[in-house]
């Protein structure tokens, strides 16, 4: 009898234990999920939704917003600065990824397939630019490009070319192309490491077979290495292209779109409309933001269509 009652008691307390654990679980879940999720709703999803609405307003942030329908979009299509910026984006979108992928593939291939004794040190050095902030990268390059005391003109002078204090970022003919250098320089390291990992995943036996067949190193690179890691290359290209559409910090620090708008890109144009020193136009900036959104999604779809994902088997 006693045992029965005790058992019952134990059962009851165990039941209570379960209830308590269940309550605790609910509290825990709430505490674990809610802060991040609410922040995500508030700071990410809500602003993204609102940007659609803002793009339909005429609003400078000071006076009251006026609903103007699609007028911002009509202006956008007619705005030659938008198309000029888009054209610059398009050029960067082609030049920067091509250079980054080409250089980092070559460097990764050399680091992986040649056993020079300095290779392990190079890997660490190459990646270093990726831990620097874009501001530091931009400042470094502003010291390189300066007309009077820049490293570039200094080096050219050592080789006998007197540049007469030519300021690379101050001339409409050179500023645009000069900016390619810091973009590539700052990006290569990451892709060297990514490509090195991809290349080292290719079984050694494939290389050995090719070597025994008498294949030359360049033939091995183009016929074996690159085809076998083409999926990785593809992901990297998508990554760099999307980054180059979104990124404008280096340009902002070095030229802020100048001289005469020759380095303006769409993100920077939008940013200056929203947060620049002159007058603000939140509505129009949002419309450009929406346009950029469409461009980004479009770019991704085009890449997916023209570079379909293949499965590769070793």
């Amino acid at each position: 009898m006693n045992a029965g009652i005790n058992g019952n008691k134990a059962f009851v307390s165990k039941r209570q234990g379960f209830d308590k654990a269940k309550r605790q679980r609910t509290v825990f879940l709430f505490l674990a999920i809610a802060p991040s999720l609410i922040g995500y709703f508030l700071f990410t999803l809500y602003p993204n939704l609102m940007s659609v609405y803002y793009s339909l307003l005429n609003w400078d942030g000071l006076t009251d917003a006026v609903y103007i329908g699609f007028e911002n979009y009509v202006n956008l299509v007619k705005d030659q600065f938008v198309w000029r910026a888009m054209y610059h984006n398009l050029l960067y979108m082609i030049v920067v990824p091509t250079l980054i992928v080409f250089i980092s593939l070559l460097l990764a291939y050399l680091l992986n397939n040649k056993s020079y004794k300095e290779n392990s040190l190079y890997k660490v050095i190459f990646f270093f630019t990726n831990v620097l902030s874009t501001v530091v990268i931009a400042l470094l390059w502003s010291f390189i490009f300066d007309g009077s005391f820049g490293m570039l003109n200094g080096i050219l002078e050592l080789f006998g070319f007197n540049m007469n204090d030519f300021y690379w970022l101050g001339d409409t003919r050179t500023a645009f192309w000069a900016l390619v250098l810091p973009m590539v320089w700052g990006g290569v390291g990451l892709y060297v490491v990514i490509f090195m990992n991809a290349i080292s995943a290719i079984p050694k036996s494939i290389y050995e077979a090719a070597f025994l067949e008498g294949a030359r190193p360049m033939a091995i690179l183009f016929r074996i290495t690159i085809p076998l890691i083409r999926n990785v290359i593809r992901v990297c290209i998508v990554f760099i292209i999307l980054g180059s559409i979104k990124g404008f910090e280096i340009i902002m620090v070095l030229t802020n779109g100048g001289p005469e708008g020759s380095t303006d890109v769409i993100g920077l144009y939008m940013f200056n409309l929203a947060f620049g020193k002159e007058y603000h136009n939140y509505g129009y900036a949002s419309a450009i933001g929406m346009f950029l959104f469409v461009v980004l999604v479009g770019a991704k779809l085009i890449i997916d269509k023209f570079f379909p994902e293949d499965s590769v088997e070793f």
């Binding site: 700071f43 602003p47 609102m50 933001g289």
Partner: peptide, 16 residues
């Protein structure tokens, strides 16, 4: 969030 580039949300985020 992978499809949201974030750049179009800068203005509304600032207002918020």
């Amino acid at each position: 969030s992978l499809f949201l580039p974030g750049i179009n949300a800068l203005v509304p985020q600032y207002i918020l």
